Simulated assay, not measured.
Amino acid sequence: MEFRYLGNSGLKISEITYGNWLTHGSQVENEVASACVHAALDHGISTFDTADVYANTKAETVLGEALKGQRRESLEIFTKVYWPTGPGGKNDTGLSRKHIMESINGSLERLQTDYVDLYQAHRFDTETPLEETMQAFADIVRAGKALYIGVSEWTAEQIRQGVALSKELGFQLISSQPQYSMLYRVIEDEVVPTSAELGLSQIVWSPMAQGVLSGKYLPGEAPQEGTRAADKNVGGNMGDFLTEPVLQAVQKLRPIAQDAGLSMPQLAIAWVLQNDNVAAALVGASRPEQIEDNVKASGVKLDPAIMTRIDEALGDVVQRDPALTAARAPQKRVC
């Protein structure tokens, strides 16, 4: 496993980071989830990413139990705040001071730790003054409950505003967590250059485009039972990636992966790690053996000819419009 600095900080994280969105507390049994976490540790992953909203706080609880007994100083534990949790009351969401302060305490209790290494704004809150949000984050850092602060799915302009305020308040934003993959490159034109300028790096989610880049979804065939796309609760969010043109283009990647000596998932993960502004690729797992395959993407350097062949294979099915970050963000709180 190789490690990279997170933003303009001294914090090093594993370039393949274990994330438990959609798995812990929901899709897989707790024993399997714990086995996946231990497989990640066994293969050199030291960084773990979760959020209070995942399985309505259960994912944090499962991760905390799975990491019990590990040397805390050897781990980097990340979580997030914004989306509704608990009963979803009027103040159980957003980035108000009230919700942030209550959420960090709940997350620390569930994760069984005194602090998180990175606390992230899971989305931008249009209904709370940014000054209020940044002041709350500053106070959490000063209280030692979080060592660093990051954001997720913020636009370049929102990142710029957040960085300016954080500097005034005596701390800095060091990371952005956006969706990024061969098929979804909307951060490249604005978010990445702005982040590089301001000292943030990316922790990217869905590097395998929610599993589509694994090649397991075939053109003209219904998703196999037991896959994410076949799950009615989550498959509906994959519509952009399950079109015939996309599935046909993805199959063209198979010989490219073979020529590179990689599996399809390894190629997808290695591809995002070629971007100098990416500190880590988030991977999840429903089986320990998936971790064993994914970690082999660490340290892989793709030849420029391979990168060109990937672009040619995917052609115009790649989504690149930077406006999609704002367009897909919540315009107001859910509750």
Score class of each variant (00 low, 15 high):
Met1Pro: 10
Glu29Pro: 01
Thr133Asp: 11
Gly64Met: 01
Gly150Leu: 10
Thr308Arg: 15
Pro87Lys: 15
Ser152Glu: 13
Lys98Asn: 08
Val62Thr: 06
Lys232Cys: 12
Pro245Asp: 03
Ile77Phe: 07
Ser181Cys: 07
Ile104Cys: 08
Thr85Ser: 12
Lys98Thr: 07
Leu200Pro: 07
Ser214Lys: 01
Gly144Thr: 10
Arg71Gly: 10
Gly150Lys: 02
Ile187Asp: 00
Ile269Cys: 02
Val204Arg: 04
His99Trp: 04
Gly239Ile: 05
Ala268Tyr: 07
Cys36Asn: 06
Ile140Asp: 02
Gly215Ala: 12
Glu153Arg: 00
Leu95Ala: 06
Gly215Lys: 09
Ile203Trp: 04
Glu157Ile: 08
Pro245Tyr: 13
Gly69Trp: 15
Val250Tyr: 12
Val32Pro: 02
Lys98Cys: 02
Ser166Gln: 15
Gln251Ile: 01
Leu247Trp: 07
Leu108Gln: 06
Lys80Cys: 03
Val151Tyr: 01
Gly211Val: 01
Met264Ser: 00
Asn294Pro: 07
Gln70Cys: 15
Lys80Asn: 04
Ser286Leu: 00
Pro129Cys: 13
Asp189Val: 11
Asn91Phe: 15
Lys90Met: 11
Asp189Ile: 13
Lys332Asn: 12
Asp92Phe: 11
Arg160Gly: 04
Ile269Trp: 02
Ala40His: 07
Val295Ile: 01
Gln70Lys: 14
Ile140Gly: 06
Leu169Met: 14
Gly150Phe: 06
Arg4Lys: 14
Glu225Tyr: 08
Leu200Gly: 02
Phe3Ile: 09
Gly19Tyr: 07
Ala156Ser: 15
Phe171Tyr: 05
Thr47Pro: 02
Leu213Phe: 02
Thr325His: 09
Ser166Trp: 11
Gly89Arg: 03
Gln290Met: 01
Val295Tyr: 07
Gly299Arg: 03
Leu95Pro: 07
Ala164Lys: 14
Asn56Gln: 09
Arg328Asn: 12
